[in-house]
Design a protein around this nucleic acid. Structure first.
Lengths: 150, 150
DNA sequence: CGTATTTGTTGACAGTTGTAAACTAAAAAT
DNA sequence: ATTTTTAGTTTACAACTGTCAACAAATACG
């Protein structure tokens, strides 16, 4: 299955273009990007090829050209990418990281409402505390309840 | 200044250990990791060296050995990392990505309260809509209000 | 038909990353 | 003082990335 984590930064940027186009031939893609990013055609072609290799894009041959199409939706890729980022953080600290992120992100009134909705639903089952899962929670002041290290 | 984005995945994992230890010599670090990750000593030493080169860690020489210490706090690094991840997403879609993330993250009651607090404060100044900032907002159904592409 | 254009394929190159062995210098143990 | 242990430095190497140029095949145009 197509994995967002397999995409490099440059590949991701290119994917964003393709997602908005839904599907397109390389020339269309190159035309759309022209002037917005200073990638040469060569660079774009390389990125396309790599994305096909990684099975993030599939191609359909039409005449002598290929139509490129995402194998993973932008929403799914975004969710995977953000989940992976947060997976790298200590469980206990994710809440505070999200709060900070929310504080620094521009959200529409609708976004806020939806978020409030989700929070309201979560509160019932929310634990009092989320345990730290660091490798060495030893001297982690936040982790009082934790097994000390030697 | 120390930048979280300069840290690779492996380096980040190592940093998590060092953050909880506050500061430590390589042998302490190696001992703490032993059994938790199957990195050889060599690997850990390489990562330490790279982190020092990247100025994410500083060292203090004590006798013949070094004490390694973070130049950036874990909180700051987390905030940088999460901000960078979200910077890669279309502005308009960040709200929904956050909502999805929140839905999939275990949050403590306190985390939820704090988030609710922040949201409550943001709602007043929240825009009705956040504009898409994709390179080719052309056929992006979500972007009705946007300049069409040729 | 022969040339210009389009599109795709190969090869390239330096920098980063994950992983680690080998080597060296200093210190500790015997 | 020898030997052993410890800590740090060098070297290595394949895979991945960001960037491209060069080349080849197919097509379109004059």
């Amino acid at each position: 299955m197509a994995q967002a984590q397999d995409m490099s930064t440059a590949e991701w940027e290119l994917m964003r273009v393709i997602w908005t186009m839904h599907e397109a031939g390389s020339s269309d893609i190159i035309r759309v990007i022209h002037g917005k990013k200073d990638w040469t055609e060569s660079t774009i072609k390389t990125l396309l090829r790599r994305l096909v290799n990684k099975e993030v894009l599939i191609t359909r041959k039409v005449g002598r050209k290929f139509i490129y199409q995402p194998l993973i939706s932008e929403d799914d890729a975004m969710d995977q990418m953000t989940a992976e980022t947060f997976d790298r953080l200590c469980r206990m600290k994710r809440g505070r990281a999200i709060t900070k992120l929310v504080a620094n992100t521009t959200l529409s009134k609708t976004d806020i409402q939806e978020l409030q909705q989700v929070l309201a639903e979560k509160v019932a089952t929310a634990p009092e505390k989320v345990a730290c899962d660091c490798i060495a929670p030893m001297s982690c002041e936040n982790c009082e309840g934790h097994p000390a290290m030697v």
